[in-house]
């Protein structure tokens, strides 16, 4: 408990000390804010990586990703080979008036086609303008920052660890063909 009024004096001291320090406000329209790495501003699309697997659209909790595609048949590359079909993206749009920035689509994408960008200045006067089509989503790719370095002592990224392991202990029995021949 201590002296009576100690709490009051402590409160006064705290506010006064805060007053003598610089305030942490960033005057936003004049000064662009220092955003932390991995800021969730807008979602960017790297079209080349997209295989139209639809995982993002299916995982999206509020169904704000619209994907249209069609199948194309590719002629066989070798004589007598099989024709291949592949998905071609016709439309990829994210409705940011519905998006709640959960980032599940980015987590779900198995081919690294979606990225977080820290850009946040895309307010519109008409809510319909908030549907970003594929061209606009692709433009956001320019603003995606390189991933920040890992914390000191952090576990290595999985693919790097796997590659390192492969270099340290090369497969002793060669490839699958060799295996099959031995059998």
């Amino acid at each position: 408990m201590g002296l009576p009024g100690r709490g009051l004096a402590g409160g006064l001291a705290t506010t006064f000390r805060t007053m003598t320090r610089r305030s942490i406000t960033q005057q936003y329209p004049d000064v662009s804010p220092d955003l932390p790495p991995r800021t969730r501003g807008v979602i960017a699309l790297l079209e080349e990586n997209c295989t139209v697997c639809m995982l993002c659209a299916r995982e999206c909790p509020d169904w704000c990703i619209y994907i249209d595609s069609h199948k194309e048949t590719l002629p066989a590359t070798t004589e007598g080979g099989r024709e291949r079909t592949r998905n071609v993206l016709d439309r990829f749009a994210i409705d940011f008036s519905l998006c709640m920035y959960c980032g599940i689509c980015i987590e779900a994408c198995p081919f690294d086609a979606l990225f977080w960008s820290p850009e946040f200045e895309y307010a519109e006067l008409d809510i319909r303008e908030l549907v970003h089509e594929r061209d606009r989503l692709a433009l956001w790719m320019d603003t995606v920052p390189p991933p920040p370095p890992l914390d000191p002592g952090a576990e290595e990224a999985k693919e790097i660890a796997a590659a390192r392991k492969a270099v340290a202990a090369p497969a002793p029995t060669g490839d699958r063909h060799g295996e099959g021949a031995a059998r």
């Binding site: 506010t15 805060t18 007053m19 320090r21 305030s23 942490i24 005057q27």
Partner: peptide, 13 residues
């Protein structure tokens, strides 16, 4: 102004 700075804000600018 004083209240703003005591709360680590800037107040009217």
């Amino acid at each position: 102004k004083a209240m703003a700075h005591m709360q680590s804000r800037l107040g009217p600018m």
